[in-house]
Write a protein that binds this DNA or RNA. Structure first.
Length: 636
RNA sequence: GCUGAUGUAGCUCAGCUGGCAGAGUAGCUGAUUCGUAAUCAGCAGGUCGAGGGUUCGAAUCCCUCCAUCAGCUCCA
């Protein structure tokens, strides 16, 4: 007998060799029905896995991330099997589960169309109904390679050949279909009840743009039809929150054929943007930042000195002035450095925090452009902090706190990544280790969870990145903290220390919002266009019921505008429902309906965009309520 | 940049195997003066993304380019 410790702490004794599924059955038939796999001492195992030692065991269901992955991985095999039946010439590459479903990469000359999905799904249904047992098998590397050569699956052969020698190589078979796969899988194809193919797109073999482009079919799978329906519904809802759609509807910005990736901000968008920027300025002034502004076009020679020429030229735009070449800045750092170098600095002045809302231009690939999220010109809420080496930790912690402050204000969830030394970077290994450890140390002393992104740092130093989610859950880098020992060296930055000698300062590049444009995109999706009152382009709309109330409405409007609230009046000759609907569609936070009753009592009938009609109050009370909301930056 | 899809009125979209370019909505004009998500009528609105080709005839078929969307790659 062996002892299993279950998640609730209870201990279950079973015979050695008992399968995970049998344990689930012994616990309860409901659990057995929902079981998709097991977690044995922290590693994922299949339902058919025999337990041979004392362990901690958890039965995985669809509510576990790992459980979902097992289901969806099996679904991807079923899809591959169906495609091989319909298109035997398709060559299989890889087919993993992902957070929202699964995909399989195939090499086939004929492009898949969404119309093919129906046929593939129908074939998948047959495979599910046939309920083939899924059988695991181990082969030696030689046998495995031989097997896939015979099947004429070149991508699989390549995968096998890249595995270390002596590795056990597992295969999974269901019916006539056998695939190289590490597993785990469900015990049979009949357990994949609900699935749907979603899209097809190109993907490079092994993610390398020099390799052949394969076709990737995305799908998803659930245990219940309702969950699938909810997921499809969620995708529909997310489309309504898309900042590109809302940006047009709310007249915030536009992107035109005349300037791909170069957004135009409209009056409404500028109000929001200016509010955001003035808040940003206040918060930075409070924390000892000084604001600067540096030119957009600077001599090419500067970019040779900074290292951008060697490491970033491909992403830069250039222009010519009086026969000399100038670069359009892709980053603000060299400008900030030139400002620093206009004086000799004392250690007493450090840290010097030079902030800049700097407009940068970068040549992004045309296919990468995405609304305001990825553009070719954007305003970084940049700052460069010049400091002594022993001030680094304190400064980095200060920036982490500031980022947290901003993100919390909007109720954003964010995740943190630490990016290490990339290829084609400047400096010595020692400098990189030192810089990377300093950032790690700061994160750990904050007790923050973070993911390491190997080789993803800037060319001059490692970085901490803050990622925010859009309406579809895709993440976008916003804040960043980059530690730099290189530029101070290259520009011979110095400060005079206590000893009267010259010393080399350390430099931090950092953003909080990242790019104002991207941040506005994220904000739009987070609030589905119903911005917090303080950011709303229009905060109050006065709506007289008929012409005869116009005069009173005018006096209300004047009173509201007088205290600095952004307000207008809809005195068109339309029915009240029509005007309300329009204001509602524009997501105006407060609608003030005024008719006979209000004019007589000196009141306003208040409709809030989310709560609806919240009753009558005096104009003064309304003004105070709105002012409080604005002042507190309430997100409701 | 790559793979695939898409591009028709300000916006959302219809337009079949090639045969007079449409709807809803927004806009303008008039009527209606109305109590919390769409009042009625009329008018106007187009180089069918751009350029080339096939054809008696092209929004529709072919080619090239541009832009957008999804994904890959890349990145704030």
């Amino acid at each position: 007998m062996i002892k299993l410790t279950l998640p609730d702490g209870s201990i279950k004794e079973v015979e050695e060799g008992t399968r995970v599924l049998d344990v689930a059955k012994a616990i309860g038939s409901g659990l057995a029905k929902n079981a998709l796999g097991g977690m044995e001492d922290g590693s994922v195992v299949e339902l058919n896995h025999p337990l041979t030692r004392d362990c901690r065991l958890k039965i995985l269901t669809f509510s576990d991330e790992e459980g979902r992955r097992i289901l969806r991985h099996t679904a991807s095999h079923i899809m591959a099997q169906a495609i091989k039946r319909l298109f035997p010439e398709a060559k299989l590459a890889i087919g993993p589960a992902i957070d929202t479903g699964f995909y399989y990469d195939m090499d086939i000359d004929r492009p898949f169309t969404p119309e093919d999905f129906e046929a593939i799904e129908a074939e998948m249904k047959k495979i599910v109904n046939a309920n083939y047992p899924i059988i695991r098998e181990v082969k030696t590397k030689e046998d495995a390679a031989q097997f896939m050569k015979e099947k004429d699956e070149p991508y699989k052969v390549e995968l096998i050949e890249d595995l270390p020698n002596g590795e056990t190589i597992t295969f999974y078979s269901q019916g006539e279909f056998t695939d190289l796969c590490a597993g785990p899988h469900l015990p049979s194809t009949g357990m994949v009840k609900t699935f749907k193919l979603l899209s097809v797109a190109g993907a490079y073999w092994r993610g390398d743009e020099h390799n052949k482009m394969l076709q990737r079919i995305y799908g998803t799978a659930f245990t219940k039809q309702k969950d699938l329906d909810d997921y499809i519904n969620m995708l529909e809802e997310a489309k309504k929150r898309d900042h590109r759609k809302l940006g047009k509807e709310l007249d915030l910005f536009s992107i035109q054929d005349e300037g791909p990736g170069f957004p135009f901000f409209h009056p409404n968008g500028m109000i929001l943007r200016n509010e955001l920027e003035s808040f940003w300025r206040e918060e930075h002034a409070k924390r000892g930042y000084q604001e600067i502004k540096t030119p957009i076009i600077l001599d090419e020679e500067l970019w040779h000195r900074s290292g951008h020429w060697d490491h970033y030229k491909e992403d830069m735009y250039f222009t010519e002035i009086d026969g000399a070449t100038y670069a359009i800045k892709p980053m603000n750092c060299p400008g900030a450095i030139l400002v620093y170098n206009t004086h000799l600095h004392s250690y007493r002045e450090l840290p010097i925090r030079l902030a800049e809302l700097g407009l940068v231009h970068r040549h992004e690939l045309s296919g990468a452009l995405h609304g305001l999220m990825r553009v070719r010109c954007f305003t970084q809420d940049d700052a460069h902090i010049f400091m002594t080496p022993d001030q680094v930790k304190g400064e980095v912690l200060g920036v982490i706190d500031l980022a947290d402050h901003f993100y919390n204000l909007f109720g954003f969830d964010y995740n943190v990544e630490l990016s290490t030394r990339p290829e084609n970077s400047m400096g010595t290994d020692e400098q990189w280790v030192m810089a990377t450890d300093a950032l790690k140390d700061a994160l750990e002393s904050k007790g923050m969870d973070y993911k390491i992104n190997e080789g993803d740092g800037a060319f001059y130093g490692p970085k901490i990145d803050f990622h925010l989610k859009d309406s579809l859950g895709r993440t976008w880098q916003c804040g960043t903290i980059q530690l730099d020992f290189q530029m101070p060296e290259r520009f011979d930055l110095v400060y005079i220390g206590q000893d009267g000698e010259k010393h080399r300062p350390v430099m931090v590049h950092r953003t909080i919002l990242g790019s104002i444009e991207r941040f506005i995109g994220i904000l739009t999706e987070q609030f589905a266009g119903a911005f917090p009152v303080w950011l709303s382009p229009l905060q109050v709309r006065v709506i007289p019921i008929t012409d005869r109330h116009r005069e009173y409405a005018e006096s209300v409007l004047m009173a509201v505008k007088d205290v600095g609230i952004r307000a207008d009046m809809d005195d068109r000759n339309e029915k009240i429902g029509y005007k309300i609907r329009e204001a509602q569609v524009q997501k105006i936070p407060y609608m003030l309906v005024v008719g006979d009753k209000e004019a007589e009592a000196g009141n306003v009938a208040v409709r809030e965009r989310k709560a609806g009609d919240i009753g009558s109050m005096t104009t003064d009370d309304l003004i105070n309520m709105v002012k409080d909301r604005i002042k507190s930056k309430s997100i409701e």
